[in-house]
Write a protein that binds this DNA or RNA. Sequence first.
DNA 1: GATGAATGAGCCTTCATTCAT
DNA 2: AATGAATGAAGGCTCATTCAT
Lengths: 201, 201, 201, 201
Amino acid sequence: MNKTKITEPKQARSIEKKNKIIETGFQLFCEKGYYHTNTAEIAAAAGMSTGIIYRYFPNKKAIFSEAVKRYSEQIQNGIYEQLSSFSSLTDLDHYLPALIDSLVDMHARFEKAHREIETMSNSDAEISAIVVDFEENLTNRFADAFEQMDGGVAYIKEKIHLVFHMIEDFCHEVVFHHHHELDYAAMKKLLPESIRYLIRL
Amino acid sequence: MNKTKITEPKQARSIEKKNKIIETGFQLFCEKGYYHTNTAEIAAAAGMSTGIIYRYFPNKKAIFSEAVKRYSEQIQNGIYEQLSSFSSLTDLDHYLPALIDSLVDMHARFEKAHREIETMSNSDAEISAIVVDFEENLTNRFADAFEQMDGGVAYIKEKIHLVFHMIEDFCHEVVFHHHHELDYAAMKKLLPESIRYLIRL
Amino acid sequence: MNKTKITEPKQARSIEKKNKIIETGFQLFCEKGYYHTNTAEIAAAAGMSTGIIYRYFPNKKAIFSEAVKRYSEQIQNGIYEQLSSFSSLTDLDHYLPALIDSLVDMHARFEKAHREIETMSNSDAEISAIVVDFEENLTNRFADAFEQMDGGVAYIKEKIHLVFHMIEDFCHEVVFHHHHELDYAAMKKLLPESIRYLIRL
Amino acid sequence: MNKTKITEPKQARSIEKKNKIIETGFQLFCEKGYYHTNTAEIAAAAGMSTGIIYRYFPNKKAIFSEAVKRYSEQIQNGIYEQLSSFSSLTDLDHYLPALIDSLVDMHARFEKAHREIETMSNSDAEISAIVVDFEENLTNRFADAFEQMDGGVAYIKEKIHLVFHMIEDFCHEVVFHHHHELDYAAMKKLLPESIRYLIRL
DNA sequence: GATGAATGAGCCTTCATTCAT
DNA sequence: AATGAATGAAGGCTCATTCAT
């Protein structure tokens, strides 16, 4: 009955500790997969004891959730920053290749993270919710931006959604490099062209 | 040392049993996830004892692998059948909505399967290889078909790849129905139009 | 309640089958150890089905018991044959090196068998009884022979017992060759000398 | 991958626990045999949980190995202590019966241990190595002692080896008491006499 | 707050033995 | 008699979580 546990840490030292767990845990989850990383390992890698983890998190999965939440925010902020420099559809045409490049880059750096998040989001409602939220936020922000550009585009959310998934697939393809018969340079040229067309449909 | 075990069953009764294990196992894996399904459950659900599983499979994962392999073949055959009725790009334009419909349908029926395969393919090389193979086969078949249609299209493989992922994302969207603010009917109209454009680029 | 099982086979075919199980089983037990040999393997190696074993033997251990019993008899007969050519203590002095040689040879050929029998005899009363019986028979036979030689020797059984173990240890040493710092040729000369002395004490 | 486990315990409490596992495990192995003792039993008998065993040992066999190692050291120390009181071959003649008595006593107390060690040493290289080492150490120590006594004896190692096995067989005989027709008192007199003779050969 | 030893349920796999055919 | 598929209990080991210190 005594559930004196888990409180949001207020002291700097505790906050730092919680952050360390999240970072280390996420890193290990990404490297070895959620089910192949155990709490003792996380604690050891974070330089603390096994027990302490359960003062900051109710269970193993919560570490992953929290990490994904933070990671999602980071990514969003990065993208929003780029978005803020667009002010017309012509800008978009112009900046699209750069945006794609930066997204490919992001995938390259967080390859393992993306895979593992996807993996977990498939079997875990909480993670799935974070991912859905991420997509929704992104779509909405872009939709808002477009609406303030050139007087609005029909079905902008739907288009943005499709576009983002096209870009994401391309990123996956380039980073994981599974289909050796594909010409990535060609794909990279096709992509902005078809996006431009799709947006204006 | 003693590896006299596991031989491909020849007798009808054994084949049936192996099939039953694959089906039941796959179903449970899809329902509850690979790591949350144990071999005893599979055996019980298949109406047999735990031990017998290991006469047909070397280990738990092999059940999943085999199931995915078969599933992949089924899906491919279904798609190839549709493909065989196309003989020109105009046909494609015409049949595209139907193809999309049928793929959405497939996803709807095998929603859980798709999720779990994706999940496992992220952390397991064998499963990943099956998925990659699946995509490669599909791309090649379509590419061949297109090449025999209208004298060839530039970068056809790359285009097909992008197109398939667009369709797949749409399927996910419709089936898992996560983004309630999206207008699926609109997306369904946008999709063939942009595909048509992309293919001809 | 229906224990229609295990009867001593009368038909030639059945006898042959039982023999085959004993031989194959013993061979495998010796090669890989009792606990690392399973009944399926024995059956397979003997070219029959798993089930049939249990028509001839009540359980796995009975195969080993029976094999050891037979093996013990074979060895005894071999030794008795040599014994029959001795008729005086002087003969013994003369034939001792040859007897030792032949015993070393036997150990060399059945190295694994000896080890495994020893192993099992330690944890299994039935096997132990066979081994004890073997030693007792051997001791008695030799004692009888000696008594008919030169008018009897005091404590002949006790001496024979000690002597046999000295020889056996020597055999082990030579065959398993564990102590590389020992000079086997020297030991082989020491052995008959001390035996001769011991017998006449 | 993750082998952060099993470190030599430093704290008194841990050391005690590890010792308890070794003792209890060894006792059970000796009573029931290695293959008939399971880890849960060991844990229960030691008053702890199954899991904790694996913080101190990488696997079941390691418990046995460690126990045998320690046991071997104990025995050696006991014998060396007796050896240190000998300073001439005449001493040996004098103390031999006492040494034999003490070795019989040791066998009586650790009967089961000896059997099980022998058993395992036959099928396990690690255990076998410990036993071989034990014999080698013992032989060397005695050889050194003898060499410092009366100016050296030819083939002393070979002789000691034979002698030790004679004594050991006698111990086995007395303790396990299998051959009821033997006169142990007589054997006990024969033994030192023939040893004395053998050493001086 | 912190530690890390301890818990014990749970999992995959093996195998002696049985039994339907 | 013979087959070999089937059974299911048992075993070694892992790991999320707890708790005494």
